[in-house]
């Protein structure tokens, strides 16, 4: 199964590269899909513990604004990715210390509240954030190399793909490690963990910090790709979108977020182009169909098709 999953990941990456070559405008869409897929891996991690965050767009927005604010000073995509990931993880640690005291709907809603507080700050502190106008992000050097627009876009696409592979592999290891299995234990028998000497809150907090960190990476990639950040990145619908992608892709395996994100972005682009007034309805219908007929999401369908157990 592990080998098949790896081959499927390779096939998906190959298809993305082929699509980006065949239709250059898709490069933008697919880079955004990869960035969101990376962020949704954090949602998947929390879903393992049975917790749904309705506020993880906070970390995407934080990562994106980190890039927007620091680009004039640091001016290197690699450095900014590291700073955005670290900053988001740190913010996740601070907020996580509070929200991991709660479970279920309280956990979800507190995350949403944090996210909306951040949205309001981005909106209202105009002299710092430029409010709803947002901040433009210029093309920046990557690892010290100055690039023209096309080379820059390909490079960011490549970085997003490489990060998706690397972080996906690390997440896969995390999920079957004692920490990952204890995280899954929170979902069914949190009390037992405590009676085994395991701090359940600490286990959830660790996962929360990781999820915030990958959210920051996703946000940084989005800022580098769209080259314009606005408070809408932190709006509650953006958090809902992440949960939407997680369900669409399936929470059973690390490929789920990427299948979900690619499907989501492609459906959105094509539906918006073909049915400008009804694209949300088409997205909603796609999600309903998945929930009704494939509760394991796209990854669940893929895992069944290749005859294995989703992980």
């Amino acid at each position: 199964m592990r080998k098949l999953e790896f081959l499927l990941a390779l096939a998906l990456a190959g298809a993305m590269i082929a699509a980006a070559i065949a239709a250059p405008w898709l490069r933008f869409v697919l880079t955004i899909a990869l960035a969101k897929g990376i962020a949704v891996m954090g949602i998947l991690l929390l879903l393992r513990a049975g917790q749904v965050s309705f506020g993880h767009a906070l970390y995407i927005a934080f990562g994106a604004y980190t890039v927007a604010f620091l680009a004039p000073r640091l001016n290197d995509a690699v450095l900014l990715l590291v700073v955005a990931a670290g900053g988001a993880a740190l913010l996740g640690l601070v907020i996580g210390l509070f929200v991991t005291r709660y479970r279920q709907i309280f956990f979800g809603m507190l995350n949403l509240a944090m996210c909306m507080v951040f949205y309001s700050l981005l909106e209202k502190l105009y002299h710092i954030t430029k409010g709803s106008d947002g901040i433009r992000v210029e093309i920046m050097p990557v690892a010290g190399q100055a690039l023209d627009r096309i080379a820059y876009e390909w490079t960011i696409f490549g970085i997003a793909l490489a990060l998706a592979f690397a972080l996906g592999a690390l997440l896969r290891l995390y999920l079957v490690s004692p920490m990952g299995e204890a995280l899954k234990g929170i979902k069914t028998r949190e009390t037992r963990l405590e009676f085994m000497g395991v701090p359940a809150r600490g286990v959830l907090l660790a996962a929360y910090v990781v999820s915030a960190g990958v959210g920051g990476i996703g946000g940084a990639l989005i800022a580098m790709t769209s080259r314009h950040v606005t408070p809408l990145l932190s709006y509650w619908t953006a958090s809902g979108e992440l949960v939407f992608i997680a369900i669409l892709g399936g929470a059973g395996g690390v490929l789920g977020p990427f299948l979900g994100a690619a499907a989501y972005e492609l459906i959105r682009v094509y539906a918006a182009a073909s049915f400008a007034d009804a694209w949300q309805m088409i997205l909603g219908t796609a999600l309903l169909l998945v929930i009704l007929f494939a509760p394991g999401g796209l990854w669940g369908m893929a895992a069944r098709a290749i005859g294995g157990r989703s992980r």
């Binding site: 290891l173 490690s177 004692p178 920490m179 299995e181 069914t188 037992r192 963990l193 085994m196 395991v198």
Partner: peptide, 25 residues
């Protein structure tokens, strides 16, 4: 109080791991 989504072996291994320290991701 078993971890219902884990196998019996994983349940016991998790107890072993928790004794040794589970902080290896």
């Amino acid at each position: 109080q078993l971890f219902l989504e884990h196998t019996v072996e994983q349940n016991v291994a998790l107890a072993v791991a928790s004794r040794e320290g589970i902080w290896s991701p």
